[in-house]
């Protein structure tokens, strides 16, 4: 069935709605890797990231999106990571970034 075309489109709502419950799999990631809570979005991980030179990979943004429950792009963005681990050396707060990335890419999302 072809969707109706009205000749215009409505842009997606940009507002982050914190009233929405976070998905169970996301909560599980935080439970399995609680060091994620340490992130303060300083950007050191992104500044040093090799994959970030060529892709949209920025770990602190993944983290932020997870905190705010914005999960649509999470798994896709995490896939750009090559797991080199430089970010983990750079992180001033000791976030176990590689493990977090592994969890995000491997956990089954419905």
């Amino acid at each position: 069935m072809c969707p109706l075309n009205f000749g215009y489109s409505v842009s997606e709502v940009k507002v982050i709605d914190l009233n929405q419950e976070k998905p169970v799999w996301l909560k599980k990631i935080f439970k399995l890797e609680p060091s994620l809570y340490r992130c303060i979005s300083c950007g050191n991980c992104a500044a040093i990231c090799t994959a970030g030179h060529f892709t949209e990979m920025k770990f602190y943004r993944l983290c932020l999106n997870a905190f705010r429950g914005q999960t649509s792009e999470l798994k896709n963005n995490a896939k750009a990571c090559i797991l080199c681990g430089k970010c983990q050396f750079a992180c001033p707060r000791g976030v176990n970034i590689r493990h977090a990335i592994m969890l995000i890419t491997q956990i089954q999302q419905p």
Binding site: K14, I16, D17, N19, N65, R68
Partner: peptide, 12 residues
């Protein structure tokens, strides 16, 4: 405004 997310935000 969530200035790190660059998006507005709401909550009850």
């Amino acid at each position: 405004e969530d200035t790190l997310m660059n998006r507005p935000l709401k909550q009850n």
